[in-house]
Simulated assay, not measured.
Amino acid sequence: MNDGTTQTGPARARPLISTWGDGTATAARPVLIVHGSVDRSDTFRRVVDHLPGRPVLGYDRRGWGASRPLGGADVDFRVHVDDLRTALAESDVPPIVLGHSYGALVAMAAAAADPSRVAGIVAVEPPVRWLPWWPADDPWERTVREAAAEGGPEQATRAMLTELLGPASRLHLARTRPSDLAADGAALISEMTDPTVDAPAFDPLTFPLRTVVAAGSRSAAHHKEVARRLAELLPHGRFAEIPGAGHAAHVSHPQELAQLVHEIDMIEEQHR
């Protein structure tokens, strides 16, 4: 998979894909990371440190990080899925896809559409809104909605980061420019209010790939419940709770998350 910006359609640039880890390793199966909302691919570098000898690919989704200029009103869930499908189509070897939160939902939708291009999935707390265990009024969505109504996109980002990181958010917020917080808030509001996310993007009962659905033991109750229930529905699914982790397990518990990637790889090796 080559670094660079190409076109997926008329005048639509693609997110830049970077290779971390040992990009020259040909024997090890690659890993492709899809980050969640209010995030970027760089925050997974601690996970990469625990995946030695393995090429790891990552990109900033549209509206976030280096791909912020690629966001906009026309970018919805389906566009993010198309971006991932394009990245998968360019990989010589089907990778293990590690998706976090919104990115986990993108990963599962893209894998369901092109299962032969994916070796397995590690899905960390995917917000599967169409499952019956997802609350009608999600607390984080309510927090963002109320903060945006009070202070606009910048306030929405501040409120969400406080929910995600707790007291640790203070330093991050103090270091971040208000204009960047506002830009992230615009992307956050767009993703949380996107009606296409509410439509079923895959059928859990026929999902063909080996999947570990993970959740932190300290995460929101409905995130853990949905992750557990989803794993039970998947024909080749397993639920994994990460002890002591909250929603941002890739930051706080990178080694444990990397181990789940290794688990998928070991299972695949046994079935080759």
Rank of each mutant, 00 (worst) to 15 (best):
K224N: 12
R229E: 15
A107E: 02
P52E: 10
L233F: 02
R129M: 14
W134S: 12
V122D: 15
A25C: 11
S101L: 10
V197C: 07
G72M: 03
L88K: 15
W20L: 15
R117Q: 02
A149Y: 01
L98I: 05
T143A: 14
I121V: 10
R62Q: 04
A215W: 09
G244N: 15
P126Q: 13
R68Y: 06
W130M: 12
A240Q: 11
G53S: 00
H236R: 13
R40W: 14
A89K: 08
E150C: 06
G53D: 09
P132R: 11
P95H: 08
P10E: 14
Q255L: 13
A227R: 06
L165S: 08
A220L: 15
G120W: 10
T43A: 04
H223M: 01
F77H: 03
E225C: 02
P153E: 07
V118Q: 07
F202A: 01
S116A: 15
E90I: 05
L16V: 14
D39M: 15
A107T: 05
F239I: 08
R170L: 09
G21H: 10
A111L: 08
T206D: 06
A28D: 05
D82K: 07
Q270V: 13
A221N: 03
P69H: 07
A215H: 11
D49H: 07
A66T: 14
P94N: 01
Q255S: 11
P115L: 06
H271Q: 15
L16A: 11
W140G: 10
L57P: 13
L57S: 03
I242V: 13
E256I: 03
H172V: 13
I267H: 09
S116W: 10
R175E: 02
A227D: 01
G36Q: 11
R170N: 08
F77A: 01
D180S: 13
